[in-house]
Amino acid sequence: MRTEIRVGGLGGQGVILCGMIIGKAAAIHDGKHATLIQAFGPEARGSAASAQVTLADEPIGYPYVRRPDVLVVMSPDAYTTFVPTLKEGGLLLYESELVVPGNGLPAGAKAYGVPATRLAEELGRRLVMNIVMVGFFTATTKLVSYEAARKAVLDSVPRGTEELNLKAFEAGYSFGIKLLGEEGNRVA
C-alpha cells in the first residue's frame, strides 16, 4: 500500500521537519519505506514551504506526490495552493486558527483541524507547533504508530528540547484522539 502526503505552510513553521519526522517514524521505527522531497517549484517561492512524503510497504520507485491522500496545511496559502490536489476521499489536516477550509474540498474528503499554534504557545514555545502537528497527524491518520512517531520526534529534535517537544507531540496526539472520539460518538 502506498500513501502520499503533502505538508504545506510558511517558512519557519517547521514544515520540512514535520514531513521528515513522519518519514522517519515510518521508515526507521515502523519498518516501512518512506521518501521525502522538499518543495522545488513555483510553490516554494516567497515564504512558502512544502514537503512531499510518500509511505509504502514496498520500495518506492516514484517519490513525487501529485495527488496526496493526506494534506497537512499550516497556512491559508498552503490550503489554497494544495487543496485542489487532494484526492477524492482524502484527508485534510489543518491549523484551525490559521486556515478556514472553504470551497474546494474534493468529494468525500474529511477535514480535521487542530489549534497547533495555540497549543504550542500554551506549552511556552510557538516553535513546536509543527511537532503538535506531528502528534495530530499520528492520532488521526494511524499511518505511523504512536511509538514510532514519538521515537522519531526524540531522534530529530535538539538535545535539551526533547521534553517540551514530547509534550507538544502529546498535546497534538491527545487533541486528535479526542476529536476522533467525539466524531465516533456523534456517528453512534
Partner: peptide, 21 residues
C-alpha cells in the same frame, strides 16, 4: 541562559531557505 538550546530548533524549522526547498 538556557534559551540557546532553542537556537538549534529554530534553525531546524527555518525551512524557508532556498537550499531547503
Amino acid at each position: 541562559d538556557t534559551s540557546h538550546i532553542w537556537e538549534h530548533m529554530e534553525a531546524l524549522v527555518a525551512d524557508f531557505e532556498p537550499s531547503a526547498g
